[in-house]
Design a protein around this nucleic acid. Structure first.
Lengths: 242, 242
DNA sequence: GCAAAAGTGTTACAGGTACACCCATGT
DNA sequence: ACATGGGTGTACCTGTAACACTTTTGC
């Protein structure tokens, strides 16, 4: 195993976490102090990434970075795009940052996104925190673009693959599922119609278990997603939406 | 402009071309002669790719390679994945090939696919030709995997975006459209139902023009796709397939 | 006049949409 | 007893699936 870093290739991670208020992104603080400890030259937020190691698979690299960020090992991840234009880093601060790290300025960033319910991440320091997707701060590098491309890919994929369940706990209520869809597509869904549809899906399996609390007084029935049934019952006829 | 090549980053192009018989892939011959001109050590088929130039955008690189291959400048292209595992090239022949080129063995390949009607490409030498997607030869490197990932991404995307039209001429008949869907999803579609559906889409615009020939005796009505209308009439309510 | 693809209509059923109130429980 | 989210039913309508024959033209 060769642990040296490949100087011109990095992996960047977009972590999407769903909570009651919507979709959030996990960002890290970037700060650079030069003349004065109190007033850093750079003090903003960025996605988390790192250079790929010489003998490391890309997926492993993404997992390593994600683990460093969240302490978690299992979450859905998707490599969705590589950003590598030469003029990608042109902003003065970004150039300064890279120089301070001695990095060659044209870096290919292989970008991944991760999906999970936000509560799974236990934040333990001030340098990492959630930001609401629709209220992001100004980000360093081209990370705003990376996030918007990631979200776009996510929206497309949710139509076609059962990714929505990645945002939920293993056991979830139908209302939680509905809310997840609403946030992902920024739409309102009729609750009665949604439940009918959901209950008719064989791969959304009702459990003999209820959840208390969560603001409600009446306990809600829990369901789970069966990937198994999903794959067995999946057919192509839905397809021709033209 | 710096025309030197980046040694560890390449772009690979998967060119999908549709014709009457289905979906085809454009491949290039790879051959390496060492001891004997008649019996090359390597003589097989691969995707076309090249190293990215030092000051070239990734998209431009893909366009340059595609142009070299087909002589065409305008075709739909999509960057769909980057392949860069260290153990990606392990086959003896592939290692030999790279050595003969003096290339560093861990290369990140940013992979694109292109969509077009096959007839647009005028083939002019023996080293490039179409192969039917479901009857590919044994390919060098990990190119089989790249193609299958590309096709998979394509199938997903066609559900969600109007990519199917990229496979057709600007003016097309409804039967051609139907056949395109049939090949992409490997399904049979009822012609009457399909026509009803298609005619009801406002973005599939009937033209006052007919096409003769093509094996048929009766001329077929031509249609065009209006991206404009598509985008204006697109709504999110189709979405919740769960 | 025949070969070859283009084009057409109806019926039955499934699934979607719109819409407003009662239920179970904790406090 | 009241506040809170959980949960339900119906009528209408739209869209889909299944199905077989006629039309237009070139040869």
């Amino acid at each position: 195993m060769d642990f040296r870093k490949i100087s011109n290739i990095s992996v960047e991670c977009v972590v999407f976490g769903l909570d009651q208020n919507g979709i959030n992104i996990l960002l890290s603080k970037r700060s650079l102090k030069m003349y004065d400890d109190k007033y850093p030259v750079i003090d903003d937020w960025v996605l988390t990434g790192d250079h790929v190691l010489k003998s490391e698979r890309l997926d492993k690299s993404a997992e390593r970075i994600f683990y460093g960020l969240t302490g978690l090992k299992d979450a859905y991840k998707k490599q969705f795009r590589t950003f590598g234009n030469p003029e990608r880093i042109k902003n003065e601060k970004d150039v300064l940052w890279l120089k301070s790290r001695g990095v060659y300025p044209r870096v290919m960033s292989v970008a991944y996104y991760f999906l999970l319910p936000a509560f799974r991440v236990k934040l333990c320091n001030e340098n990492t925190r959630w930001f609401s997707l629709d209220n992001l701060p100004k980000l360093g590098f081209d990370h705003s673009e990376i996030i918007s491309k990631a979200f776009n890919d996510l929206q497309n994929r949710v139509v076609v693959e059962p990714l929505i369940f990645e945002f939920l706990d293993d056991k979830f209520t139908l209302n939680e599922l509905q809310i997840a869809y609403q946030y992902v597509f920024d739409v309102e869904i009729d609750n009665r119609n949604f439940r009918k549809k959901a209950i008719n899906k064989t791969y959304i399996v009702p459990l003999d278990e209820k959840r208390l609390g969560h603001g409600s007084k009446k306990p809600a029935n829990l369901y789970m997603f069966s990937k198994d049934i999903y794959e067995k019952t999946r057919d192509k006829s839905q397809i021709i939406n033209i």
